[in-house]
Design a protein around this nucleic acid. Structure first.
Lengths: 161, 161
DNA sequence: ACAGCCATGTAACTTGTTACATGATTTT
DNA sequence: AAAATCATGTAACAAGTTACATGGCTGT
């Protein structure tokens, strides 16, 4: 979603080097998002360029650590606190239906069928994830996953109309 | 969302020139999405490059028209019929909550308050749009807008937990 | 004459993304 | 010794996006 902000998030508590960020990222998202390691490094460079992150003790050239700057903390704060747009066209499926209507694509039913399938697949995925979570350690994550499942159920209900 | 596919959609029924696409696009989305005209032209060039669109009678250099190719129709078809991912991390607000938890950002309540505000704003926007729609001409759009409103209501309900 | 719309385009930049190269260290 | 993991990076491209330049045509 926003690799930049993920990195700022992980650097918030302590400095890390690229590979460390990669590992921590995978843990944070419980391996639900496959991120190419290379992207960590390209994004770190860009964050340094923008003054949101700065390199630490780059002496010999090994395990270059990075730390977040004050500006980086502010950027992260603003991002977190900023709400997410939820207008009609921000939902790609609605947008597709709009386009389908425009060209008189008479296969809305098939679109809906496939979308339902995807939602079911995503629900299974979420349920599988939930069973893997530790009720103590991942308490907040469990709430999120359950919220996501409720969301998917609402989605499904709407498609059944 | 996908400017490329919007353009393919508009070229599906007949060839058009850039400005025509811009006007039709604004109509199609009922002015809910502000698209810079320049982007139409850059995207058209890229579509031509990829063989999804081809220029028509570019004689004197005025009103260059473009038409969709067979490959373009197929691309559009595949895009329309393809389902949209709905996993946990694809929702930016969930992702923000995850990051907030990671850094022990103790302002989840404020995040939720602001997100609710945004949803209410988007709901008002949708309701305003609905009143502007023609019950005959825009029948399908009305369904979509009402669906979006239901969606927003479900969103709101979840945030109230 | 001037405003406003019709119409086209480009240069520049952003983020996301990947395939690939390279080598060190650790485990089997 | 081979395989796996640790670790860093680069070149290249896609798509989104915008500010800006340019000129014709139309109505007042």
């Amino acid at each position: 979603m926003s690799v930049r902000h993920s990195i700022l998030t992980l650097l918030y508590s302590r400095p890390r080097h690229g590979y460390d960020i990669k590992i921590s990222f995978d843990e944070m998202v419980h391996h639900q998002w496959n991120l190419n390691v290379g992207q960590i490094y390209t994004t770190l460079d860009r964050l340094v360029r923008d003054g949101l992150v700065e390199p630490l003790n780059a002496e010999h050239g090994e395990k270059k650590e990075y730390q977040i700057t004050q500006q980086g903390r502010e950027e992260l704060y603003q991002w977190l606190i900023g709400p997410v747009e939820r207008s009609l066209l921000k939902d790609e499926f609605y947008f597709k239906l709009l386009c389908a209507k425009q060209i008189q694509f008479h296969q809305e039913e098939e679109m809906i069928r496939r979308q339902k399938e995807m939602i079911l697949r995503n629900m299974l995925q979420m349920r599988a994830l939930r069973t893997q979570l530790d009720p103590v350690e991942d308490h907040a994550m469990i709430l999120l996953v359950e919220g996501a499942i409720l969301h998917l159920e609402a989605d499904l209900k709407w498609l059944e109309l």
